[in-house]
């Protein structure tokens, strides 16, 4: 066991964890933030996507100790303080961008990171940007619609 210090969703966290602990396991089992899903556990499906220091990563393929000193944002950390949804969450709801919901936390986090990098993406940018996230229900069209719609709504908020 070794000590790990990081920030998760704005809160300081200090914890002991074994060197072999994956960030996904640390978030789910130590911090009980079970919104981060583990689908394939082979870094293909993207359900475990979280944002570390501003970058989307697959938390099943990063050691928790590699996040020492970092700022981690999970799906639990993006809604507004008053409980209203993040624009990407709201757009997923409006556009019916989920069915079973298993991939949704990863899709939303990947989309949030994508929009931070490319605030005005094209349809092709969104599809390329979500290549690391698999959905087995929706056929992706509504997800792409939701991301494009949230890009517009977020631009409106900032303007």
């Amino acid at each position: 066991m070794a000590e790990l210090t990081l920030t998760v969703n704005g809160n300081p966290v200090r914890s002991d964890c074994a060197p072999g602990t994956l960030l996904s396991g640390f978030l789910r089992e130590t911090l009980h933030l079970t919104g981060t899903h583990v689908g394939c556990d082979t870094s293909q499906c993207g359900a475990c996507t979280v944002i570390v220091d501003g970058r989307s990563i697959k938390s099943c393929t990063m050691l928790a100790h590699e996040a020492d000193g970092a700022s981690v944002t999970t799906i639990e950390g993006i809604a507004n303080a008053d409980g209203t949804l993040h624009p990407v969450q709201q757009a997923f709801r409006t556009h019916h961008a989920l069915q079973c919901g298993f991939c949704t936390p990863g899709m939303v986090m990947a989309s949030v990171a994508l929009l931070a990098r490319q605030p005005e993406p094209t349809d092709a940018d969104v599809r390329h940007g979500l290549e690391g996230n698999m959905c087995r229900c929706t056929g992706y069209q509504n997800i792409v619609d939701a991301v494009l719609a949230s890009a517009k709504s977020m631009k409106g908020v900032q303007a």
Partner: peptide, 9 residues
Amino acid sequence: IGDPHVRNR
């Protein structure tokens, strides 16, 4: 290479 999340690591 890979996908955006893989490219970030």
